[in-house]
């Protein structure tokens, strides 16, 4: 083990780094949702009378595009708050 660092602290730190890495998944949905919003703006500019339908379709598409980001978020939350790696390490009884 590294000097002065307990195993538990090491696992907690690595879990935090892992949570940060998992949140990189937020980039994709961000780009995708912005793209969809931009296209919806274009559509409203071209056809202002269909604004309600366009907004509804855009929100639905964005919600589906968001799914991958939410998966990353759930993994980050589990790593930070449920701490499965720490309990697995303690469960090993080393």
């Amino acid at each position: 083990m590294l000097q002065g660092i307990t195993s538990e602290a090491f696992i907690l730190g690595c879990s935090a780094i892992g949570a940060g890495l998992a949140m990189i998944a937020g980039i994709g949905p961000g780009i995708g949702q912005g793209n969809a919003a931009g296209k919806a703006c274009e559509a409203v500019g071209r056809q202002p009378e269909a604004q309600g339908d366009i907004t509804r379709t855009m929100l639905l598409g964005q919600a589906v595009a968001e799914t991958t980001g939410i998966y990353g978020l759930v993994i980050a939350i589990i790593l930070l708050f449920v701490r499965p790696l720490l309990s697995a390490y303690i469960g090993l009884g080393l």
């Binding site: 919600a63 968001e66 799914t67 939410i70 998966y71 978020l73 759930v74 939350i77």
Partner: peptide
Amino acid sequence: ISLSFRLFGNVMSGGI
């Protein structure tokens, strides 16, 4: 799974 995680993730992250 995606349906439930979408709602859960949004509300949960807002709360956190």
